[in-house]
Design a binder for these strands. Structure first.
Lengths: 243, 243
DNA sequence: CCAAAAGTGTTCAACTTACACCCATGT
DNA sequence: ACATGGGTGTAAGTTGAACACTTTTGG
C-alpha cells in the first residue's frame, strides 16, 4: 500500500486465538519514550491498530495493519464497532505515540474496530512477530484505555456469529470429532454444554457428514470423524442456529 | 457547534416515520448546478448527512445534521453501519456537491450511518423544513447511489431492535390499545400478526398495565386502554423478546 | 339490527432441558 | 482390569402457529 495516511481514520483489530481449551487475544507491545527531566521508557500492550491510507478500504487497512504489526495474515476480519470518543486521544499518550510513529500531527481520530478468529494450533498463526503476544482472555480485563471494553464487545459479537455462521469449522481440521466441535462452542461461548443435547441438535445438520473413519491411538473408545460440507451448508443456510 | 469540519468523516441519517399504516423515510432534496456549455440544475433526494466537526461526537453530529437539514430534533439515533467504499465519492456529483456546500476540498470520506424512528402523527415531527420530505418506504427502492441499500440495512436493524427494546412504545400515546401496539409491530415488521397469539404473548409482560379506562366514541366495541411501565420494563428486561 | 373491531382458548408440532448408563479402546 | 472419553434415549415443560366465534358499541 502506498499513498497518504489519513490522519483522521484508523482501524483497531481484536483477533481471538482458539487454543484448545482457552481463548486468547492478540496484543502488541508499545514503547513510549517520555522526554522529561530524565528520559523514561514505558511499555504496555495495546490492540493492534493504526491509521488508514486514503485509497484503502477499511477492511483492507485492518488486514494490512494486523499483518504489519503482528505478522499474521490471511484471516477474515469483521467490522463491528466505531470508536469516536473525544477523550480517546486526550490521554496524550496515545496521541503522542501515534504522532511519533506516523510523523503526522493528530487532531481527531475515529477508529473502526474489527474482530477475527484464528486457530492457535496452526503454526502459521501461533508464531507472531517480536512485540506481539497472545494474551489469555482472562488477563485482558484490566487493559489501559477502553481496550478491555472493546474486547468484551468483540467477544459478544463473535458469540453471536458462531451461532449462525460456519465460523466454528474454520477452527477445526478437515476431519474432526463431535467432541472437538463441541469444545469450540464451549470455549468461545464460555460455558459447558450437554453433549447429548449437542449431538441431538447436530442430527438436523446434514452439512456435518459422518466419515467411515475413526480416531486411532487414543486411550479410550475412538470417536467417529466427521467433515464439514460447505455446499450443503449454504443450501440449508436459511434456518440454522447452533444452540 | 463551532470549530472545524473534518473533511474525512461524515454521518448519514435514516429516519423512519411511523404513519399509522405505513413507514416513511426522511429525505432531503439536493440541488446540483452543473456549469457546462449551458448551465443545468439537477434535483434529487438523498439521505440527510454531512461532515462532522473535529470536537464533536458522531451521535451529536448526526443529531445536529439532521436538525439543520430537516428541522427535526430531539430524537434518538442509533449507529448501525460504516460506509467506506472508495467509489462513493467517485461519482463526482456527491463530491462536487460536498465541496460546494462545505467549501472544503474533499478526498476521502468515511461515513457513519445512524437510524432513528419517529411518530408522524406527532406534529413536532411531521412538519419538516422546505426541501425535506417523508417518502413512502416502498418508493425508496430506486434511490441514487447506495442509499436504497443503506435504508434496507437500517430497516433490518430496526426490526431487530423492536423485538428487544421499548422502541415500540415511543410511537404510542400514553394510553394505548393492544390493537394499536400490534399495528406498530405489523407496520415496522412488514407482516400481519395473529391478534390472539399477540395478546397471549403480552400476558407475560407485566410492564404493559391495563387501565380501568376504555375507548369512547368508536363505532364498535371499545377497546381497553393500557400504559407502559418503564420501571417494570427495566426489571424484567433480562429475558424478553416480542414475537 | 347491522357493521365493525374487541376479545377469548385449544390443539399440534417442534424444540429445550435435564438427566444416567454402557461401550470401545490403550495401558 | 481399569481408566478414559465416546456415545445413546426419554420424559416434562415450553414455545410458536394455526384457527372461529361471541361481545360490545355507534349508527
Amino acid at each position: 500500500m502506498t499513498g497518504r495516511l489519513n490522519p483522521n481514520i484508523s482501524v483497531d483489530c481484536v483477533v481471538f486465538g482458539f487454543d484448545r481449551d482457552c481463548l486468547r487475544v492478540l496484543l502488541v507491545e508499545r514503547e513510549i519514550v517520555f522526554h522529561g527531566d530524565t528520559e523514561k521508557t514505558v511499555r504496555d500492550y495495546k490492540l493492534p491498530g493504526s491509521l488508514v491510507y486514503n485509497e484503502e478500504l477499511l477492511k483492507d487497512a485492518a488486514r494490512r495493519v494486523l499483518h504489519d504489526l503482528t505478522g499474521i495474515g490471511g484471516i477474515c476480519l469483521e467490522r463491528y464497532d466505531v470508536l469516536d470518543s473525544l477523550e480517546r486521544m486526550d490521554n496524550r499518550v496515545d496521541r503522542q505515540w501515534l504522532e511519533q510513529t506516523t510523523g503526522l500531527s493528530i487532531e481527531r481520530v475515529v477508529s473502526v474496530a474489527f474482530f477475527g478468529l484464528v486457530n492457535l494450533n496452526d503454526p502459521l498463526v501461533s508464531k507472531v512477530k517480536d512485540g506481539a503476544r497472545w494474551m489469555n482472555l482472562d488477563e485482558t480485563k484490566q487493559l489501559p484505555f477502553d481496550h478491555s471494553a472493546i474486547i468484551e464487545r468483540a467477544l459478544a459479537v463473535l458469540q453471536q456469529r458462531l451461532r449462525v455462521d460456519a465460523t466454528a469449522f474454520g477452527l477445526l481440521p478437515e476431519k474432526f470429532t463431535i467432541a472437538g466441535l463441541q469444545q469450540v462452542f464451549e470455549v468461545i461461548g464460555g460455558e459447558k454444554l450437554d453433549s447429548r443435547n449437542f449431538r441431538k441438535k447436530l442430527k438436523n445438520f446434514h452439512f456435518i457428514v459422518p466419515l467411515r473413519e475413526k480416531q486411532r491411538n487414543v486411550a479410550h473408545k475412538p470417536a467417529r470423524l466427521y467433515s464439514f460440507d460447505h455446499k450443503r451448508f449454504l443450501q440449508s443456510r436459511k434456518s440454522i442456529s447452533f444452540f
